[in-house]
Design a protein around this nucleic acid. Structure first.
Lengths: 204, 204
DNA sequence: AACTTCAGTGTACACTTGTTCGCTATTTTA
DNA sequence: TAAAATAGCGAACAAGTGTACACTGAAGTT
């Protein structure tokens, strides 16, 4: 039942996905991707594409899913490092920056499609980011004695700042990247400290 | 010397710009804009476009400039309101949200091209956002006794959070928009409070 | 062994894209 | 008033797009 046929199909499906990811770059976003070009790089005739995806749209959503998966791997890796001790914020940011460096195109995809022209894509990306935020929220709630809402707002703000730093890091060289990292760590500390002191003098 | 000819040329140039802005939407970004379509909406033959812009690229950069201009108007408006008294953060966020509602397409342009496929566009958008941040930084520095770096990091973080909220608001209805506004105000307060307390216990 | 399923192929079609090239009509300049 | 400059036009072109269709050969089924 393994099916030599199903096996082969899965394989070329991956080839399509990989070809697409490979053609994403700083200069080329998903919307500029051409079915023909992707098929060609996957070693397929253009028309064979349809045996695997109904649509470029469908491929795109698959890519977003892949990206979300990679994002969750990132979180796991960060958690492992954190357990070994050290500044949580620092470790998290550094891990994230490593992710950007290794998976630039994947991150670019998320970043772009979050504000892209397809409502479906936007929703898909936001879903992935929400997962990311929720996990962080849970962590914050277990590590502090703040209420849920405060933790969520905090987690949300932290994620936004880190993603934005990641976006900037995409265009940066090694030295600039280190500056961004240092800057971001400080900014995250603002948020963490601010969330702790939130009960004092509410009228700013 | 006024030149009936130069006058007319300026007029149709504006028509092109307006047509382009008008064709931007949630579903259509600048990169999907077609020279022919823009020219048609401006009431021109496709080829006449070249009398005003060398390129779609050139038009795009002009649009980004326009957007930056609108952004600066927004700041002025917010400052005026703040002078009349009230919570600075609250007024700023509300003003920004009104801007989003009135200039959705302009904001979308900035948002998208910030992570778009053209390095030139990305740079142009980041320049506009940097202006925005610097102005806020100056304000913070004059209104507090924090050092320059802290003020800049704070301003930068505030802008990122507000822009991100704006992005979310683009897809939201009235009720959701109010929730986003309330949430954002709280998050900005985290940052402001955190920047004030930054000297205490640096190892988080 | 005969029959069915289906991943992959190549051709073809209808469209849209940006851009070039002469041309006209009108304003500007000399 | 004659000459030069130029905004706008329509036709045409080459290139690229997604997709429909009929076909082939190998894998799966009975």
């Amino acid at each position: 039942m393994s099916g030599i046929r199903a096996q082969q199909k899965e394989k070329t499906r991956r080839q399509i996905i990989d070809a697409a990811l490979n053609q994403l770059s700083a200069e080329q976003g998903f919307s500029n991707l051409s079915l023909r070009e992707v098929a060609k790089e996957a070693g397929l005739a253009a028309t064979s594409f349809y045996r695997h995806f109904n649509d470029m749209n469908e491929l795109g959503l698959t890519l977003v899913d892949e990206a979300g998966l990679t994002l969750r791997q990132l979180m796991r890796q960060a958690r492992q490092r954190i357990e070994k001790g050290g500044s949580v914020i620092k470790i998290s940011v550094i891990t994230f920056m490593e992710f950007i460096e290794a998976n630039g195109n994947v991150f670019r995809l998320l970043l772009r499609e979050r504000s892209g022209t397809s409502a479906e894509f936007r929703a898909a990306v936001n879903r992935e980011i929400r997962f990311f935020t929720m996990e962080l929220c849970d962590y914050l709630q277990s590590a502090s004695n703040l209420d849920h809402e405060t933790c969520y707002l905090q987690a949300n703000a932290l994620v936004i700042i880190v993603f934005s730093a990641g976006a900037e890091a995409l265009d940066a060289n090694e030295k600039e990247r280190q500056e961004i990292t240092a800057r971001t760590i400080k900014q995250l500390r603002f948020i963490v400290r601010g969330a702790m002191h939130i009960n004092a003098s509410p009228t700013i």
